[in-house]
Design a protein around this nucleic acid. Sequence first.
DNA 1: CTGAAAGCGCTAACAC
DNA 2: GTGTTAGCGCTTTCAG
Lengths: 327, 327
Amino acid sequence: MADVAARAGVSLKTVSRVVNDAPYVQPELAERVLAAVAELGFRRNHLASSLRSGQATATIGLLIEEIANPFYATIAGTAAEIARQRDTMLIIASSEEDPVREQQLLRDLCARRVDGLLIVPAGSPGGSDHSFLRAEVELGTPAVFLDRPAGNLRADTVLLDNRGGAREGVRGLVAASHRRIAVLLDSIGVHTMRERLDGAQDALVEAGAPYDERLVRDGVRDPAAARRVVAELLERPDPPTAFFSLNNRITLGVVEELYRRRSDAALLAFDDFELARLVPYPLTVIAYDTRAMARTATELLFRRIDGDRSWPRTVTLPTELVERGLR
Amino acid sequence: MADVAARAGVSLKTVSRVVNDAPYVQPELAERVLAAVAELGFRRNHLASSLRSGQATATIGLLIEEIANPFYATIAGTAAEIARQRDTMLIIASSEEDPVREQQLLRDLCARRVDGLLIVPAGSPGGSDHSFLRAEVELGTPAVFLDRPAGNLRADTVLLDNRGGAREGVRGLVAASHRRIAVLLDSIGVHTMRERLDGAQDALVEAGAPYDERLVRDGVRDPAAARRVVAELLERPDPPTAFFSLNNRITLGVVEELYRRRSDAALLAFDDFELARLVPYPLTVIAYDTRAMARTATELLFRRIDGDRSWPRTVTLPTELVERGLR
DNA sequence: CTGAAAGCGCTAACAC
DNA sequence: GTGTTAGCGCTTTCAG
C-alpha cells in the first residue's frame, strides 16, 4: 500500500480510501491511485484490514456432519447464497459426527474470527455439549443451530417438526388399517431420530394400536443393512404390513428389498429425495423444505451479526406428506 | 495476550511460545501460562498470527459452480477431508457458471490470502479467462484446476477422460448394431460436453456410421426438457434406436420418458448416480471416480503449497462402463 | 531459555 | 478533502 501511495504521489490513507470506495476523494487522485494499483498489481490484504477494524471478517462458519451428503450440501448451498448477497464467504467444516472434532473445529472457526456460526450439532450418543460457546457468543460471535438443538446452550435454533411429521404419516398408515408397522432407524442417539420415533408412537397410542418393540430396529446404518432387516422381518410368522423408514438412506434399501420381493407392504419414509418419483415402488414421503430451514437459520444469523440482541428463539418448520414412486 | 502475560507474570513472547507449542519453555512457566489462558478465556487470533508470519493462513479456497450439486458436493467433501488432515480450513465459493462472478470470488479469495486455490472453471460460452491469476500464482498462491481446463493459464489440471469414455460407450452401441443414436447435451459451451460429443463422433466415424446432426440436441437444460426431446425424437418417422445422454440430469428425463413409453431403445449415459441401480430402465453408464479426481487435485495443490515448483502437469483420469438399472 | 523492540498491512482518530 | 500518528494481536529478530 505504501508503494502504491508513493507511486501515485499521495498518502497511504488516501490509497486506503480509494481502495475502500470511501467518499470524499478527488476523482483525479482516485484515478492516479487506481492506475498505481493496476501497475503494481496491488491487492488489498483482507486479513490485515479486519484485524485493524475490529470485527467484520466477512466470513461465516458452517459446521455440519459431512459436505458430501446431499442434505448438508443443500444447507451449505443455501447458506452460501445468502452469504454471497452480503459479500460474505463461507467456511465449511465437517464434524463427521464426532463431538470432539466438532468442538475443535468450532474453536478454530472462532480463532479465525468468523462473524457468526451456523451449526448442525454432531448427534452422537449423549449429544454434544455446546456450553463452551457461551463465552464466544457473549464476545460477539453469534451462533445459530440447525436441524438439531444445541446442548447446554440457549441459542437460536431452527428445527423441523420431526415428531409432528412422523405422527401424521403414521396416522395415515393406521387409517389404512395397518397395525403391524415396522420402524427402521439409524441411531436413536440422534435427536431427529428420537423425535420421529416418538411421533410414530404418538399415532399408535392414539389409535390404541399395540406397540411392538420387536418391530422397531435401531442401528440400521446403510441401505444394505436395511435390506437385511426388511428380509428378516418379512420372514417372521407375522410380518409387518407396513414399513416406516426414518431416513432416506434406509429408504433406498427398503425399497430395493420390497421391490425385489414384489411385496405389497405399505412404505412410509421420512425425507424426500431426488429420484423418489422414479423409484419402482409406491411410497409416502414425509417431505420438508431443507432450503427454507437453511434460509431461516442464515437470516437469523445475519440479524444477530447486525446487532440483534433479542431473546434467542426457536423456529419449527412444518413437514408435508407426499405420494412418490411408480405405481 | 498481554493480559495473559501479566497474569502469568511472564512476557508476551513466552505466552506466544506456549500457545504455539514452541520448544524450550520451562514446564513451570508453561503451566502458569496455560492456567492464565484458561482463567481469562484467551483465544489466539489466527488472523493476526498469519498477518505477521507472512503466509500460512491454513485455508484453501474451492471455487465451484454450486455446492448443492452432488458432483461438486463430493469434490468439496473430499477436498475438506484432505485439508483437515493438514489442519486447513476450506472456503467454498460458488460461481453459478458466471465468469465475472468467478473472477470476483477468486480475487476475494486471494485477498483473504488463502494458501491455495482449487478451481472448477465456469464453463459458459467462451470459457473463462484465468490469466489474471498468473500474478497471484507467481506471488505464491498456487492454483489447481479440476474437471475443466483453465483458460489462458498454464497450471496443474486434473481432468476426466471424457472423450475416451464417450468413445468407448458409443462403440458398445455400435457393436450392438445401433446406427441411429440420439445425443442429448446441456450446453456445447462447456468443455466436458464438447469432449463427450467428440468422443461419440469418434466412435461413429470409426464404424463408418452416418453422423446425423438432427439427432444431436444441444440446450437440454433439465429433466423436463429431456423428456420433451425424447418424445419428439421417438415420434419421428425414423426414430433413434439408442440414446446417449451426456449428463445425469438429462438421464433422469430420458429414463422417465423411455420407461413411460415402454420403449426398447438402448440408453447410454455419462455420469453414474446414486440410485442408478434402482432406475426402472436398463442403461449403461459411463462412470468415473469423482473422489479420486478431487483427491488428486487436492494433493497436487498441497504439494505446490509445500513448495513444489516443478512444471505444471495435467492428469487425466479414466472412466469405466457400468451396467445399471432394473432389467 | 526468556524478553524487548520492531513491524506484518491496514484503518481509526484526529489534525491540517 | 487529505495526511499523520498510533495501534489491531501477533511473531520475528536479536539481545540477554
